[in-house]
Design a protein around this nucleic acid. Structure first.
Lengths: 359, 359
DNA sequence: TTGAAAGCGCTAACAT
DNA sequence: ATGTTAGCGCTTTCAA
């Protein structure tokens, strides 16, 4: 009944000893014995404590023993002593749902790793119970903090248990100001940048096909569009703002209305709408960018970069959101406490807007 | 110097006590004291040990104390005792690189969670050093096992340190048979299914635009194409197999060659090529599916479901790969030891192939 | 420069 | 039915 052989269940060839496989892991104590020193000493050399002076000879003996035995520190024991692990939790309501949400994981992971932290992720698919469990689990594993993220930019209510940890909201924010640190994309700047691409293309009469679905993006991008026009001294014409469901079909369906507006430039709420619009325009025998200059939003690689012609758009900074979230969590970035920190959405210019030949 | 106030650094309002925030976490011992029982008893009720009979009254007292104090077990201490954590590591060479690779995380996460495990992820971007570090970290945190995954299906060499853990390869495999458990997509079945969609559409002369880039997918899908033809009693005609770089441009560029083949049905190596081909066909005034029936591969949602017409294709089972990997790791699924387990690639029929009206 | 020893929070015999 | 106690592997005073 002695747990001496546990884990040996999958040796491919039972009669041959498993090479360097998981038997009982080597402990610090064993290293100490092998090196003929105390565990304290081993701990000291492992952690390279600056003050503690260890004889170079001893240090070497320890290092040799470590290598020899293939010692690996037990992070659990370490964490038990210190109280907090080198984990950062990431609770997401959908890695699945959207193709680019994965980028926030990616950004968080890279940044976390850079600071010696590993990412513990939980996909909750928006299920509150699952979410609670996930947060509980993270708390139990003594995570350094938790990133709570949503797959699209939106307001959210902070789960109660989240407050037991250090946390920051990513791609979402709490409606009550000052309630939580948060990082979100700068929709206004994005909408402005998108419009400016068209402006730089020499257009002054620019339509905007907004989404019908309420969201910070809907308001923000519209505001950005207005800001850009104003900055260019162009009066805002409500007639030029259409609305459609924000997907391919929506964009396609908006074609007719758009053509009635007698414009040669349009900013679409997102790339998928632009993709649909491409089809609609084509069916009307119109060419891009000559007959119609088009700008999207999101920079969904699969779409934007590969449409014909490639779509000029504005990038949703998912990677940066993840990274900034980690930085904010670790206190490396400033976090204004009464409003979310906004991350820039950079313009990505491709061929769907012709270069301006000044009049 | 007593570490009594650690973590109090971010109370928003210093003069007001932080509500239920992280002070010193409540320990099991404190619960025991509050309930007037021993720690063993508390442990017993927490873990619902079946044999140990605890007086209902006592049990209740303990539960109350737990609730009252907001006790959370320290998973680190638990793990330290038991030797292995409830973590499963996932080492990926690119969550970033491809839009659907995230699905394998998702599948792994869901399945892991289902069995009480949490996912610890590390994105290595193919960097071997990072990879080694990531594996080391996972080992140190005593993960139950490691999923080693690649973003596209390919052979891989198993990192040495990976063998220190229980592991399974996901979406990749070791060239030397029997060296590692693995789960991969069934490319041949996929290629066959894709071709069969066209066959069912009544086509007998079917072209295949394969990739120029060597990969299991390239060989497997071609084999599947051949298999399907053979099963339908159609002789294989090498003339009908073209090759192009597997992206939009490649598909677009292949249009001309394809049209020379005088076919009305084509199976494209992937959806992106199909997307490019759509453009090429359109420019030639050809319509889909009437003039040309098209089938893709991968089922990249953003593309396939929303092209005009929606693209019939075959789905790469990333989610299933992740889930199956976890199951195999936990010994829930059979793992044939000498070859990778193949996961089916289901056909997804949409409108790019017309329904067959038998002659 | 190094060692001894006291825990970190929890589980699991073994007692009672 | 419940309490005592000895660790799990490590860090960290405090001594030597």
């Amino acid at each position: 009944m002695i747990s001496q052989e546990k884990d040996s269940g999958n040796a491919a060839t039972p009669d041959v000893p498993v090479r360097k496989s998981r038997a009982q892991p080597v402990t610090l104590r064993e290293v100490a014995e092998a090196a003929g020193v105390s565990t304290a000493t081993v701990s000291l050399v492992i952690n390279k404590k600056k003050n503690a002076r260890i004889a170079e000879q001893t240090r070497q003996r320890v290092k040799d023993a470590i290598r020899q035995l293939g010692y690996r520190p037990n992070a659990m024991a370490k964490t038990l002593v210190s109280g907090t692990s080198r984990f950062i939790g990431l609770v997401a309501d959908g890695v699945a749902t959207t193709p680019f949400a994965g980028q926030i994981i990616h950004g968080a992971q890279d940044e976390a790793w850079k600071h010696g932290y590993a990412l513990l992720i939980a996909n909750t698919e928006g299920n509150r119970d699952l979410e609670t469990d996930a947060i509980a689990m993270m708390l139990e594993y003594k995570v350094r903090g938790i990133l709570y993220s949503t797959w699209f930019h939106r307001p959210t209510v902070v789960p109660e248990t989240l407050r037991e940890a250090d946390f920051v909201l990513v791609n979402c924010f709490s409606p009550e100001p000052g309630a939580a640190r948060a990082v979100v994309p700068d929709e206004e700047q994005g909408g402005k940048s998108a419009t400016e691409i068209l402006l730089r293309g020499g257009h002054r009469r620019i339509a905007f096909i907004n989404a019908t679905t309420p969201a910070p993006a809907r308001d923000g991008r519209l505001q950005g569009y207005k800001d850009a026009l104003e900055a260019a001294g162009i009066p805002f014409d409500p007639e030029l703002v259409l609305e459609a469901y924000p997907d391919q079909e929506g964009g396609y369906g908006a074609t007719e209305e758009l053509l009635k507006r007698n414009v040669a430039a349009v900013f679409c709420y997102n790339d998928r709408m632009a993709m649909g619009l491409y089809d609609g325009l084509r069916e009307n025998g119109l060419s891009i960018p000559d007959d119609m200059a088009v700008v999207g939003f999101d920079n969904q690689e699969v779409i934007a970069a590969h449409l014909r012609p490639p779509l000029s758009t504005v990038s949703l900074p998912h990677y940066e959101l993840g990274a900034a979230g980690v930085r904010m969590l670790l206190g490396l970035d400033e976090a204004s406490n009464d409003s979310a920190v906004k991350i820039m959405c950079p313009a990505v210019e491709r061929a769907s807007v012709a270069v301006h030949s000044p009049a």
